[in-house]
Amino acid sequence: MWPAPVTLTGNHVVLAPLTPDHAPALRDASADGALHKLWYTSVPGPEEMEAEIERRLGLQKAGSMLPFCVMTPDETPVGMTTYMNIDTANRRVEIGSTWYRRSVQRGPLNTEAKRLLLAHAFDTLDCIAVEFRTHYMNQQSRRAIERLGAKLDGVLRSHQIGPGDAIRDTAVYSIIASEWPAVRANLTWKLEQPRC
């Protein structure tokens, strides 16, 4: 299996292989801020958590996703992220289907989680590119992706049909292997800065 399940550990976050045992804490995390009610993103509601974990694990078995439980350093689950749309032949992955409980947003957790995932993708898996996708209207997510150093590849217009038959335009970003050293240096620098 490429990529194989792995635990990635930093100072602010632990990314562990997702299991059904994470469901109770992830139900609580989803309820924090009612993230599942945002129309421009797809966060499972508390009552949908077991089904979402099962869905992600099914995609892992099919070889198209590697799901992680996002946890604080004390191993409290606070969200999910994945390598998805895995393209083994071309050594490409997308980092996506990411969400975090409201109380850990806008802190170092996301920056470090992305740094860990990018480092594993480029330094261990030898990826040629890592992609990010988000709803065109999700400005918070787009700003976070751009702060990582990803560049906008383009917008897929009328790309998907979402809840309530809303049409989604998808903003597609990527970081390529030659950009990784500069992106890594920038993310490391950001993590070393004091936060007010």
Score class of each variant (00 low, 15 high):
Asp21Arg: 15
Asp21Cys: 03
Asp21Ser: 14
Asp21Gln: 13
Asp21Phe: 10
His22Glu: 13
His22Cys: 06
His22Gln: 06
His22Met: 15
His22Asp: 05
His22Lys: 01
Ala23Ile: 11
Ala23Leu: 06
Pro24Asp: 01
Pro24Arg: 11
Pro24Phe: 05
Pro24Gln: 10
Ala25Ser: 15
Ala25Gly: 13
Ala25Thr: 06
Ala25His: 13
Ala25Trp: 10
Arg27Val: 03
Arg27Pro: 10
Arg27Ser: 08
Asp28Val: 09
Asp28Phe: 03
Asp28Ile: 08
Ala29Ile: 04
Ala29Phe: 04
Ala29Pro: 03
Ser30Phe: 08
Ser30Lys: 02
Ala31Arg: 02
Asp32Met: 01
Asp32Trp: 08
Gly33Cys: 11
Gly33Phe: 13
Ala34Arg: 13
Leu35Pro: 02
Leu35Val: 11
Leu35Cys: 06
Leu35Ser: 00
His36Asn: 09
Lys37His: 15
Lys37Asn: 12
Lys37Thr: 15
Leu38Met: 14
Trp39Arg: 01
Trp39Asn: 04
Trp39Cys: 08
Trp39Gln: 07
Trp39Ala: 08
Tyr40Leu: 11
Thr41Phe: 04
Ser42Thr: 13
Ser42Pro: 05
Ser42Ala: 15
Val43Lys: 00
Val43Cys: 07
Val43Glu: 03
Pro44Arg: 05
Pro44Ile: 12
Pro44Glu: 04
Pro44Gln: 12
Pro44Thr: 09
Gly45Ile: 00
Pro46Arg: 02
Glu47Phe: 11
Glu47Met: 09
Glu48Tyr: 10
Glu48Asp: 15
Met49Leu: 11
Met49Lys: 00
Glu50Tyr: 10
Glu50Phe: 08
Glu50Ile: 02
Glu50Ala: 06
Glu50Cys: 03
Ala51Lys: 13
Glu52Asn: 04
Glu52Gln: 05
Glu52Met: 10
Glu52Trp: 09
Glu52Leu: 04
Ile53Pro: 00
Ile53Asp: 01
Glu54His: 14
Glu54Ala: 15
Glu54Lys: 13
Arg55Gly: 09
Arg56Tyr: 13
Arg56Asp: 06
Leu57Glu: 03
Leu57Cys: 04
Leu57Arg: 02
Gly58Pro: 00
Leu59Cys: 11
Leu59Arg: 08
Gln60Tyr: 10
Gln60Met: 15
Gln60Thr: 06
Gln60Gly: 08
Gln60Pro: 01
Lys61Pro: 03
Lys61His: 14
Ala62Gln: 15
Gly63Val: 06
Gly63Glu: 12
Gly63Phe: 02
Ser64Trp: 08
Ser64Val: 09
Ser64Gln: 12
Met65Thr: 09
Met65Lys: 04
Leu66Asn: 00
Leu66Trp: 06
Leu66Lys: 00
Pro67His: 04
Pro67Asn: 14
Pro67Asp: 11
Pro67Lys: 03
Pro67Val: 05
Phe68Arg: 01
Cys69Leu: 09
Cys69Met: 02
Val70Gln: 04
Val70His: 00
Met71Cys: 13
Met71Arg: 00
Thr72Leu: 02
Thr72Ile: 07
Thr72Phe: 02
Pro73Met: 11
Asp74Glu: 14
Glu75Asp: 14
Glu75Trp: 08
Glu75Gly: 07
Glu75Val: 09
Thr76Ala: 11
Thr76Ser: 04
